[in-house]
Computed example of a mutant assay.
Amino acid sequence: MKTDPTWQPALLEPASTGTDASADGLLEYLRGTDLDGLLVREKAVIFRGFGIDVDTSYEGVADVLLPNRLAYVHGNSPRTKVGRNLYTSTEYPAEYEISMHNEMSYARAWPSRILFHCDVQPGTGGATPVVDGQLWLESLDAEVRDAFAAGIRYTQNLHDGIGFGKSWQATFETDDRDEVDVFLATADAEWEWRGDGSLWVSQLRQSTLKHPAGNTEVWFNQADQWHPAGLGEDAAALADVVPEDELPQNATFSDGSPIPAEYIRHVRETGMRLAVDVAWQTGDLLLVDNVAAAHGRRSYTGERRILVAMSD
């Protein structure tokens, strides 16, 4: 059965939950709700009007929504850690959009839930678009789906403190090479420490995934975020001057052959076109099933501070 093209995240407010417009009211609702069932049914849920504040009320609510909060280890986007496994959302310049993706779908293991919190709403723009992963998959050209069927190979060149992209220390949240070795050994990755202190990592991963609860198949990869064609003019210019095997990150087909740029653009544009924008209000929470739905970011002006945490 094809998915509903009119899907959008559920919006829950004090009036619809029958509780007070406070963190205690939200906690009362959450403790009487089957959260797993809610997410399977809705795929993403906005909690609005409960006055959640990161300094006073966030932790208690987050502990219920995220039963096992995870560190952002082996994450590839720039973030700042601001609390207990709580991070700023991707710190790319405000004028750029961030394409649709499932968090850490390039990794051996990924979070099942993502929780966004709006600490400061943007001046203009800055919505978080969310897309149904089944709809995204069904809407891609058959030629593109078939080309990706065997999977995707992701490669990283992580510097030792100075260079393009992220360092291996920032990526793995440690200065201990032995810890990195243990992590990568359990992640079905190939890796090599280079003479200059940098780290090369290669991972073969899936392009689609079946949801463990609904058994629906979804588009589930980040090829367009790793491939130079999906990263804008600056990345494309870098790819022109840096050998392919030295790029900070790259994505190829499973056999190492290059992914055509037009495939990457088609995947990216399809996801952004189908996405539903969540326009932020300060205090909002957005809980996302990280397999059922992908997310991104629209460009914005103003301060915009969105925090993110994850759970398995």
Rank of each mutant, 00 (worst) to 15 (best):
Q206V: 07
V288C: 00
R69H: 09
E303L: 07
A170P: 00
T33S: 14
T216R: 14
T80M: 12
G51R: 09
D240C: 13
A127H: 04
H227D: 06
G302H: 12
E262W: 15
L38K: 12
G302W: 11
P258A: 09
T186Q: 14
V82C: 04
V288Y: 01
A147M: 04
S99E: 09
G123I: 04
P93C: 14
L140G: 05
T6R: 14
N250Q: 13
V120P: 10
H266E: 15
Q121E: 15
G296S: 09
D240H: 12
D196M: 14
D160A: 15
H227M: 09
W136P: 04
S77P: 00
T124Y: 06
G32A: 10
V241M: 12
W191T: 02
V241Y: 06
G165K: 04
L307S: 00
A10D: 01
H101F: 07
G195A: 13
L38E: 12
V73E: 14
Q222S: 13
A62M: 07
A187N: 03
L135Q: 14
D255K: 08
V130T: 11
A223R: 04
G161F: 06
D188M: 12
G25C: 11
V241K: 02
Y96W: 08
H211W: 07
A213W: 01
R273C: 08
T155I: 02
L231G: 13
L231S: 10
V182L: 00
I259A: 08
H227G: 08
A294R: 06
Q8Y: 02
L137K: 08
R205M: 02
H117D: 15
L184A: 13
M100W: 05
R153S: 10
D146V: 12
A275R: 05
P228D: 07
Y72T: 06
P248K: 09
R145Y: 07
V54A: 06
E233R: 14
G18Y: 07
R297V: 10
R41G: 04
A237F: 08
D160G: 14
R268S: 15
W200E: 14
L30W: 01
L38A: 11
E103C: 11
D24C: 03
F47V: 10
Q249G: 09
L238I: 10
G214W: 02
L27E: 11
H266K: 15
A71F: 06
D4M: 13
N102Y: 03
T282L: 00
T19M: 03
L209E: 06
